[in-house]
């Protein structure tokens, strides 16, 4: 038999908590983006796993596809902002970016 739904949900919860810890711990904006991607993937894993409960509808997989689309937009715009901020402040440590004056 296949592993139960619970195991996938435990994995997704673990990935989400790891992503949260990565966002909180790392002192680098790109590492924080990696953590956000990890959290988005954990939520996608949950959606696909719950789709196994209702295999006829495929609504979970559709929603996972839309989440992937939005995650791509977030990554592109986020990295563009990171590059721009790096160009301006010469640092990618978010704690050191503390002045509002352009």
């Amino acid at each position: 038999m296949m592993p139960s739904l619970q195991h996938l949900l435990y994995l997704a919860a673990f990935l989400f908590c790891t992503g949260l810890a990565v966002v909180m711990v790392k002192r680098n904006t790109i590492m924080m983006l990696l953590g956000i991607e990890l959290m988005l993937n954990a939520s996608n894993l949950n959606l696909v796993a719950f789709n196994r409960l209702y295999p006829a509808s495929l609504d979970g997989q559709m929603f996972a596809l839309f989440v992937i689309i939005v995650a791509v937009c977030e990554a592109a715009v986020g990295l563009a902002i990171v590059l721009r901020v790096y160009q301006h402040y010469q640092t990618s440590v978010p704690d050191e970016i503390s002045e509002l004056k352009g």
């Binding site: 296949m2 996938l8 696909v48 789709n51 196994r52 997989q61 596809l65 992937i68």
Partner: peptide
């Protein structure tokens, strides 16, 4: 995903 019957995803 493949093992959860979501090949397209």
């Amino acid at each position: 995903y493949v093992l959860s019957f979501a090949e397209f995803v």
